[in-house]
Design a protein around this nucleic acid. Structure first.
Lengths: 339, 339
DNA sequence: TTGAAAGCGATACCAT
DNA sequence: ATGGTATCGCTTTCAA
């Protein structure tokens, strides 16, 4: 473990010069720069994180968090894990600026991004899939702000790192599981939040991939519930009344789980239906305890939040770049016993 | 965020005195000590980890790792995760001393513990369940060495922290899952490593808890395979020939998975049996891809290794004591799609 | 029993 | 363009 001081001695320059080279601050003669870089490689220099942490303490490195989480129960666990991480990392001088928002208002998200611009060194964001937002994010990156996108992998948006789930695989896992635990001849009703949400789309696609090549399985109906429980209640009721042959329900987004289950209960159909859902939010757990929902796909929300924070912390405080540019959570299967 | 300097000013003493109080080095007048402790609480002083790390760098804090892992595939992932953590933490000056061992030789484990005694500040150990080992561990604790027990929660052994799985719940989860994915009338054959291994015992117990109150489910036979694939092969073959009515197999320990599956294949019974197992070691994954094994219980081996290392790191380098004294992994259900 | 001062590794700023 | 120096929070001498 060689230090910056030793490196300076070996190169015959001062620590200041080394620092300038290491952090690309310019004002170093090219040949010296080359020499330093060379030596650095040769001696396998790695900056000491503790030293960095201490020295850059005055910087008050800060990260902005912008997640349209309000009203989406899935994000409760994500945020909770992030807050826990915040507490741990604040000892090291990391400041967190929270900017929650409700719903998918593009202009609002753009405004908040703008407002954060000169306040933070890093940004954790769940971007809305819109060109204007994407442009803003790309601007951030160009300005040297470290960006982690969380849970929504928007195309053509730059980022240094993506943390989220593999929804296509989530759909496949759900499909395969339903084939295992459901009746032999599956007559499936599907409820989802909105086809406009990329994640919901992909879950559906994955599910269909598993079902389509099996003549025993039929998807009878697909309806949107806008992630609203009341709407979900009515939609599910309609669906089940229209198609009494349905014997399995796949609820793709956690928003409508509760409403769908209540609809099933109101029709006294709970014994006739195998229900599987996404996410283990409190109402889902309740319905699993009541044996209405058989299984849920769990996408490690806490781990998502924790990982995003850790990546930012390692970058800002320790100067360690993330090893990968995509951190994808496993799709887990949860039943009553391993909730 | 108050610093040691500010604390010293407020108390009207020097930083040296504060340090003596904080680290119980003695040589402080009791009333001053009380004053400092008081102020510390009042101002909610928390030592800055970066400062600590930097100053105590020369200490070369070190951790010993003693796991009877050789030959048990489950531990491959645990060790791999620990090695990754080692690489990350060595930048911060943490030294790791590896002492792997094969099998469950009590004296050997005791000897290695002794040998580590004056080399390490912390120990991560998977203890053999024996009074002699337990005594050694308790000695360590008495000597002020920080001990994390991993994956084997031995009774009456002290430790600062336990990291492992909940095997009773693992058995329950496996049982509930088998009831979901297996035939209606279950005729179950069970294979386990050894009833002497606490974890195997508990998995069996949990499994029975689920099965016993259901007249549809019968455990037909239980056999030990000593975690040996050849033995497992023969034992399984015998069991299936003796009890042709068996329609489900529960393989409790990963050691015998492969042998059991090969036995099933040799009898051309793979279509008639629902097989579920513990752990996703490579041979298990192979058998899942061949559709022989339907599902596996996954106990987050990587997370176990990573967490144990993190706890030690936080304690030795950052001076943060673990929040809890037990870190229990979830029992996950893995099928082909979400391996 | 106590205080003062010298580091630990990296950064930031001020002189050259 | 470069070197020198103070600084971050804490530990560890060494004197007194």
């Amino acid at each position: 473990m060689i230090t910056i001081k030793e490196l300076a001695n070996v190169c015959g320059v001062s620590r200041g010069t080394i620092d300038r080279v290491l952090n690309n601050r310019g004002n170093v003669k090219p040949e010296k720069r080359a020499l330093v870089l060379n030596m650095m490689k040769k001696l396998n220099y790695t900056p000491n994180p503790a030293g960095k942490a201490l020295a850059s303490h005055r910087n008050h490195p800060s990260v902005g968090i912008l997640i349209p989480a309000e009203g989406i129960r899935f994000f409760d666990a994500v945020m909770d894990a992030m807050k826990k991480a915040e507490k741990k990392y604040e000892l090291f001088g990391l400041k967190v600026i929270w900017r929650n928002m409700h719903g998918y208002d593009v202009n609002m998200q753009c405004n908040i991004i703008d407002e954060l611009k000169d306040k933070v060194h890093a940004l954790i964001i769940t971007p809305i899939n819109d060109p204007k937002v994407i442009e803003k994010i790309n601007e951030f990156i160009a300005d040297g702000i470290f960006v982690v996108t969380l849970n929504n992998d928007v195309e053509h948006s730059d980022h240094h790192c993506y943390v989220g789930s593999d929804d296509l695989n989530g759909g496949q896992t759900a499909g395969a599981l339903l084939k295992m635990i459901g009746p032999e001849k599956l007559r499936i009703g599907i409820l989802l939040g909105s086809l406009k949400v990329l994640g919901h789309q992909q879950r559906l696609e994955g599910f269909k991939l598993i079902m389509n090549d099996d003549p025993q399985c039929n998807v009878i109906d697909i309806k949107e519930n806008n992630d609203d429980d009341i709407l979900s209640y009515n939609t599910t009721k309609d669906m089940l009344e229209e198609h009494p042959e349905i014997n399995a329900l796949f609820v793709i987004s956690s928003g409508g789980n509760y409403g769908a289950c209540r609809a099933v209960l109101s029709l006294y159909k709970e014994k006739d239906l195998t229900i599987i859902v996404f996410d283990t939010i409190p109402t889902t757990i309740e319905m699993m305890k009541n044996h209405i929902i058989k299984a849920a796909i769990y996408q490690h929300p806490r781990q998502q939040g924790q990982r995003a924070m850790q990546i930012v912390f390692d970058y800002l405080i320790n100067g360690i770049r993330p090893e990968r540019d995509r951190y994808i959570m496993k799709n887990e299967i949860r039943i009553l016993q391993n909730l």
